[in-house]
Amino acid sequence: MFPYLGLKASTDLAQIKNRLQYNPQVFEFYTDTHDLTSDGLIHLADMIDLVKAHGIHQIVIHHPMKYQQIHNEMFADATKATAEYNFLMSGSEKLIQLAIKHDVQVLLHGSYNEPISYIKTFYPSVTAARNLVFKRLAYFQSLGGDHVMFENSISPVFPFGDSTIDQRIFQANLRLCFDISHGFIYLHGNNQRLQTSLQRLAPHIVHYHLVDSMGKTHYSLPLGQGKIDWAALLPYLNVQATNIFEINLKDQMNCQEMIDSYQYLQQLTTAN
């Protein structure tokens, strides 16, 4: 029942065991480049089986955030950034194949937060980069179907909150992960516009990253410690979706801040 106790960890066994002691209902793996090697994929599959053995069946694999210290951007240029492009495409395809085999989900970022000046080193405009991204998202969705979802970020290439872009996402029938803090930051800390976007995209949202923010940059704060009005946005969330609490931890071997955020949201839902 929403909100779920959804926790996140790397593929490190010690981190996973720390999360499993709380009996989460949703588990998200945060992967890196090593996880896409032959040995890494075998280990990831083993960790998926381990999590499933604990009775958890809502499992998400988050694709690697970076390749050689560069964001794993969906708009990676095939000719000017060949290594990054190859990693994006082959890595995403491998994760989708793994997800289908093990009946789990893959989360791909539609964008991260590169400055417009960087985007324009590859494309004449943000719109051109966005058009390419939508083609790639359609390709990955054709491969993964109900096993793939796409996350928003702060970048103008693939944000949530702009009515025109939201409508385009809606028309493309994409399965979405809505990172609440990313939407809040993109909308410059405007709670009302955040709620509007959540309501507009709700039918397509299958997963949430629940995390607080001051609305300026990526703070990854526990719920209740930022400026997001959680009580006001609760009615706009799709209760059929899953969620994790994507909080910046003081210690990766201790997910207490995630547990605290879950308890905070539980109290709000009970009060409502």
Results as ranks from 00 to 15, higher is better:
residue 106 V to T: 06
residue 88 L to P: 00
residue 125 S to N: 12
residue 110 G to R: 11
residue 56 I to R: 06
residue 83 A to T: 07
residue 42 I to W: 05
residue 35 D to W: 05
residue 90 S to G: 00
residue 107 L to C: 11
residue 108 L to T: 06
residue 44 L to H: 08
residue 87 F to S: 01
residue 73 E to V: 08
residue 100 I to A: 13
residue 102 H to A: 12
residue 123 Y to M: 07
residue 51 V to Q: 05
residue 42 I to K: 15
residue 102 H to C: 08
residue 111 S to F: 08
residue 118 Y to I: 12
residue 85 Y to S: 04
residue 69 Q to M: 06
residue 51 V to P: 05
residue 46 D to R: 11
residue 112 Y to A: 07
residue 97 Q to K: 13
residue 70 I to S: 10
residue 62 H to W: 14
residue 116 I to L: 13
residue 59 I to M: 06
residue 67 Y to G: 03
residue 95 L to N: 09
residue 45 A to N: 12
residue 42 I to T: 11
residue 45 A to R: 14
residue 101 K to G: 10
residue 74 M to L: 14
residue 37 T to K: 10
residue 82 T to Q: 10
residue 58 Q to H: 01
residue 41 L to C: 00
residue 79 T to Q: 10
residue 68 Q to K: 12
residue 118 Y to K: 15
residue 76 A to M: 04
residue 76 A to F: 03
residue 92 S to K: 00
residue 96 I to Y: 14
residue 122 F to Y: 14
residue 75 F to Q: 03
residue 113 N to L: 08
residue 60 V to S: 02
residue 66 K to S: 11
residue 95 L to F: 11
residue 61 I to K: 06
residue 106 V to Y: 09
residue 59 I to L: 07
residue 70 I to D: 06
residue 51 V to Y: 07
residue 90 S to M: 00
residue 57 H to V: 08
residue 66 K to A: 12
residue 89 M to V: 15
residue 115 P to F: 05
residue 124 P to R: 13
residue 87 F to E: 00
residue 83 A to V: 01
residue 40 G to A: 03
residue 89 M to I: 15
residue 120 K to Y: 09
residue 100 I to Y: 08
residue 36 L to D: 03
residue 41 L to A: 01
residue 48 I to S: 09
residue 114 E to Y: 06
residue 103 D to T: 10
residue 86 N to F: 09
residue 104 V to E: 05
residue 118 Y to Q: 14
residue 55 G to Q: 09
residue 44 L to D: 04
residue 122 F to P: 03
residue 60 V to N: 04
residue 48 I to C: 08
residue 123 Y to A: 07
residue 50 L to A: 00
residue 121 T to V: 03
residue 60 V to D: 01
residue 98 L to H: 12
residue 37 T to F: 10
residue 101 K to I: 01
residue 58 Q to V: 00
residue 100 I to Q: 15
